[in-house]
């Protein structure tokens, strides 16, 4: 005999399924995400400027103090170059926010050098040129678009040669740098809305899963990031609760430490 609660659950499931299959004109007000019959695609990694845009709406941010355009060391390990490339592209978005043309131009050159270091320089050359030209004209919208194209082209080129893992490290590097700056800004002028921008548990889980599938990248920085994400997870995965200032400060310490590790030699 099937208990009543089972019937109830089945009924709710069927209703949700029917609702999801209903005509396009009227979308159902509620669906059961857990019972989605369709396969769910991986979480989409946002660009750093999506977060920066939301931050801007909370108040004036002194972006100049976050601009970083120093060349840094040259690495030979491809995973390290990929991580660094992600952070440098994120630095490009910061320089755009700060409207710092010189920094943008330096970053354009750096992006090209790093892309060459992992064998995808050819697909980046036109974008690097476009970034530098647009920075000269102070056309920030074009710089932003070209930075987005750069990241997309790098990742497409890597995926084409089945270097998806390196492509994921580019995204991770950008996310870490974006989170470092986000927490730095919110730490200085705390607001609940600012702290809420850290509420990205699915993204963090996505990166954790991806890193676990990279045992061949046996580098100290990769292990440090893996350990750090374990530390960060409970600080930002708070459900409906607010993220307190102490958590923002802690995430900032962790991401700053990782950021330093990414740009410096072991």
């Amino acid at each position: 005999m099937i208990p009543f609660t089972r019937y109830l659950k089945l009924g709710v499931g069927v209703l949700c399924g029917l609702a999801l299959c209903a005509g396009a004109a009227q979308a159902p007000q509620h669906i059961n995400i857990k019972q989605l019959a369709t396969r769910v695609e991986d979480v989409v990694v946002p660009l750093p400027n999506e977060i920066f845009g939301a931050l801007n709406k909370l108040g004036t941010v002194n972006w100049k103090q976050h601009v970083r355009s120093d060349k840094g060391p040259n690495f030979t390990e491809r995973p390290r170059i990929a991580l660094l490339l992600g952070t440098v592209i994120a630095d490009g978005f910061i320089a755009v926010q700060a409207e710092d043309a010189d920094a943008v131009k330096d970053i354009g050159q750096r992006v090209l050098a790093l892309a060459k270091g992992i064998g995808v320089g050819n697909s980046i050359t036109p974008h690097a040129k476009a970034i530098i030209e647009a920075a000269d004209k102070r056309n920030w919208e074009n710089v932003r678009r070209e930075l987005d194209r750069t990241q997309n082209s790098v990742q497409q080129a890597m995926n084409e040669v089945h270097d998806e893992k390196l492509s994921q490290l580019v995204s991770l590097g950008g996310w870490l740098r974006g989170t470092e700056v986000l927490t730095s800004v919110v730490k200085e002028h705390f607001s609940s809305d600012g702290a809420e921008l850290l509420h990205q548990p699915d993204l963090l889980s996505y990166f954790q899963t991806r890193l676990q599938a990279m045992p061949e990248f046996n580098l100290p920085i990769i292990r440090q990031i893996q350990d750090a994400l374990v530390e960060v997870k409970p600080l930002i995965d708070v459900g409906d609760r607010r993220i307190p200032p102490e958590s923002v400060k802690k995430v900032n310490e962790i991401t700053t430490r990782l950021g330093h590790g990414i740009v410096t030699r072991d």
Partner: peptide, 21 residues
Amino acid sequence: WGGDLGSGEKKAVRQQLFKGN
């Protein structure tokens, strides 16, 4: 994001969105 679907089929894409945007 893209792919192909048959008539009546659905696909879900999970995405991080930020309040304020």
